[in-house]
Design a protein around this nucleic acid. Structure first.
Lengths: 340, 340
DNA sequence: ATTATTTGTGTAAACGTTTTCAAATATACA
DNA sequence: TGTATATTTGAAAACGTTTACACAAATAAT
């Protein structure tokens, strides 16, 4: 592979001049520039980004650490972030933690060695010591989708999950449901907690009493939600509606309901959370809580870029976006949200 | 950020010795090693991988260039590859081309500058000049899922798409279907071509005549398939079955059928290709062609690693895996493939 | 024509590692 | 004890860029 010196030699100039051409710096005679460019093209020269990074102390890379790329929620996020990052010449190093703190710890180690310019974490645990080295390193960093419990000074972009959950339950209540079950996410995730709190808040505000027998645990994106739903369905005082803490769980709940020979929404209504692509499919038609994922990703990346470039920016960045209720068919409403 | 010199100074040794400790090289006195390690821990030192890469001529990174991360097929692939790569200390730089040759060209440029140790392409076009620089660079490279038309010496792992398509049509034929439509993928993708050929081959072998009126184009993962299905459904000589060239297209076909008020499989049978996760959902139950994606990813990565490490390996690597028919409900078969 | 300024180019140091080579120290063997 | 050998360590060069600085050449101002 040719280096800057090879180009310099062939073009009959010094390395410095080649560098100036590569970086489009001024003070290069047009004909020199042309001569150099010709050599670059002819020799298929690709400037070594390692060497550049060494000097300039910037790698133009961002570590994207996410929970599960096969969850459409994250896939859609990753797509947007890769796209936006690319426009600003950043590459994305993708890490998939499966919500495992050990995995995350290892990936953080690697990314710190790779001297990434910034981190995006989607999604952290409420209490997440694996992030300590990142914070200590002072490398810019922002949380996405889930936030931490303490750590008041850390940047994040999240949804108002409490409000989202409230809206979901409110919708069910307005449709006449009085016994509303929750298949909730883990307490160790802010989303799990906050959506649970929204559920509680809604119950209270509508005068429904909290019944712990119909609040079951379903790990995110796991088939544990299926079992939870089966349990709910077969209980003697069966709920008329199930609110699942995310769409993947809602899909599992749907599976359970269907396989039990019950109908949605006639026998049991179902609401999800996230509005992943498949939720709108005519065979699914899941009523769910939507969020503007593109905006969320955009805010995360823009903030990160500003931190990296030391542009002025009110720190910490702590953005809480508003959710939307998207009504489809799984709750039996007569007024589905119109398609865009 | 501390460097190797800072550690050396604090531990009272030379940089060389620190390097030996970091790399677990022999010939370091145990107490020295300990002393150095202590400094490393205390100072939160992370060896600069750029500098290491400069010397060792290895970046321990692999460029994964894929068509669309929001297509579960690719998301599942990415997950496996990231996981396997991590085990061998490789990081993945993820690029998302949206099947756009220009995008791909830009990403390749970036990856060549980043001096990735290898490339995985999922998925290329039949004719794909954007790959020329990669081939010229001699950086190890393997194609995944789709291959190129000429270029006989390039490595790939693909499925026997022709056979898969044949099996899909055969299944429909055995269920009594005689008028089988195809919503096909682009001719510019090997999968589109090969699956089309398999379709043709099956028609011929079962004595069915090819009718171009029921072979429509549907871009992969686009809603164009929806329109194609609508057209098929509303044609005067309506087909009794539709074979879609991948699952995402099959999902769109299902949408079209449902929204036309027809039933699957009673009025129209549907087969897909890929067996993405959602295909097995009880609300979908898509009969489809399955492939062992994990094995495919594993072969791709293992081969690539061997090329990188210059281990002996029969080149070119050109693996064609066998597909499987997974029978569910969308064709009306009484004998679904048993779940694992 | 002389000086001042601008423009264009090259030299060399620096970025943080790894690795070769040589030197110093420790150990084995007689 | 002396020599041969093995072990442990350090100095310095190299990887491929960018950039500060110096200088030469070209242009502008007097």
């Amino acid at each position: 592979m040719p280096t800057i010196k090879d180009i310099a030699k062939r073009a009959g100039v010094s390395g410095a001049t080649v560098s100036r051409v590569i970086n489009n710096l001024p003070n290069v005679k047009p004909e020199t520039r042309e001569k150099v460019q010709k050599s670059i093209d002819e020799m298929q020269y690709y400037p070594n980004s390692l060497a550049r990074g060494m000097r300039s102390k910037k790698t133009n890379s961002i570590g994207l650490v996410l929970a599960d790329i096969t969850n459409p929620f994250y896939a859609e996020t990753a797509k947007t972030i890769i796209e936006l990052a690319g426009r600003h010449d950043y590459s994305i190093i993708l890490c998939n933690t499966n919500n495992d703190l050990n995995e995350q710890h290892k990936y953080i180690d690697v990314l710190l060695q790779r001297k990434v310019d910034g981190f995006i974490f989607a999604s952290v645990h409420c209490k997440d010591p694996s992030l300590d080295p990142v914070i200590a390193s002072k490398v810019p960093c922002i949380l996405y989708n889930r936030r931490m419990l303490q750590n008041d000074h850390i940047n994040y972009v999240v949804l108002d999950n409490e409000l989202g959950a409230y809206m979901a339950v409110e919708h069910l209540y307005n449709l006449g449901h009085r016994r509303i079950a929750l298949v909730r996410g883990p307490n160790t995730f802010s989303t799990g907690r906050e959506r649970f709190n929204g559920y509680l808040k809604a119950l209270k505000s509508f005068g429904l009493k909290y019944d712990e027998k119909i609040v079951l645990q379903g790990k995110y994106s796991e088939k544990q939600s299926y079992d939870a739903a089966i349990k709910l369905i077969s209980s003697k005082d069966r709920p008329t509606a199930i609110f699942a803490s995310n769409d993947l769980m809602a899909l599992s709940v749907l599976e359970a309901v269907i396989s039990s020979g019950l109908r949605v929404p006639e026998d049991i209504a179902v609401v999800g959370f996230d509005d992943i692509e498949i939720a709108s499919h005519s065979a699914i038609q899941l009523t769910t809580i939507s969020q503007n994922r593109n905006m969320m990703a955009e805010i995360a990346l823009d903030s990160l870029r500003k931190m990296i470039n030391k542009e002025s920016l009110q720190l910490p960045v702590q953005v809480v976006l508003k959710p939307m209720l998207t009504v489809r068919k799984t709750c039996g409403s007569k007024n589905p949200t119109s398609r865009n």
